[in-house]
Amino acid sequence: MGAGLSMTRDGGVLEPLLATDPVVGELDELQFSLGEGPSCDAMALGSPVLGSDLAGVAAGRRWPAFASAATERGVRGLFVFPVGAGAAKLGVLSVYRRQAGPLRPAQATDGLVFADAVFVLSLDHRHGISADLDEVIDTAFTARRAEVHQAAGLVAAQQSISVTNALARLRAHAYSSGLPLHRIAAAVMAGSLRLDSDHDGQMKEED
């Protein structure tokens, strides 16, 4: 029936940002005011929460107030995909359905890929980057590699910034230099590249 996007400012409270349907907006909002629901769980766990039957016993036990509110509005399915990676938690993508039943595996994969694309777009937004969609999807793919996250952790410690901002900075540097993200990350880990905090996206070659 529709989808919603809720985002947080630096790991705080989730705020509904977009909803394709008024009921979606209302139910997203309701979860955050109740402090309960699949979106809250997906945000906390950092993994998708796939609620295939909100009228079922398991959902009623897990989210008593939200499950009954959703069922009253004729909503039976809620599938939530986190927008983030590790400690970088930006928000959640919620997909609502009137019928009960699981998503097909390909639909669940689509949800995960869309959430990854939103993740990269939001990181880029922090540095005013507007990459084309192919590049965003490509980055979403490489953004899961181990060295990218090691480098984000290193930059976070070095500059006393959040992991989210460190990832955004790495991505900005990759975008402005035209080099792939994993190469930038490898150079940061090897100590041959230092991202300067005073000049975002600028690079200081050391030794």
Binding site: A87, G153, V163
Partner: peptide, 29 residues
């Protein structure tokens, strides 16, 4: 159920990402 597999698999992958971020953080600190 397939949904649980998806949830748990993603949870394992995300846990690993968090560990990598912490490793990078600690190499500096």
């Amino acid at each position: 159920r397939q949904e649980i597999v998806t949830e748990q698999l993603q949870s394992a992958l995300n846990s690993r990402i968090l560990i990598e971020q912490a490793k990078g953080f600690l190499t500096h600190s």
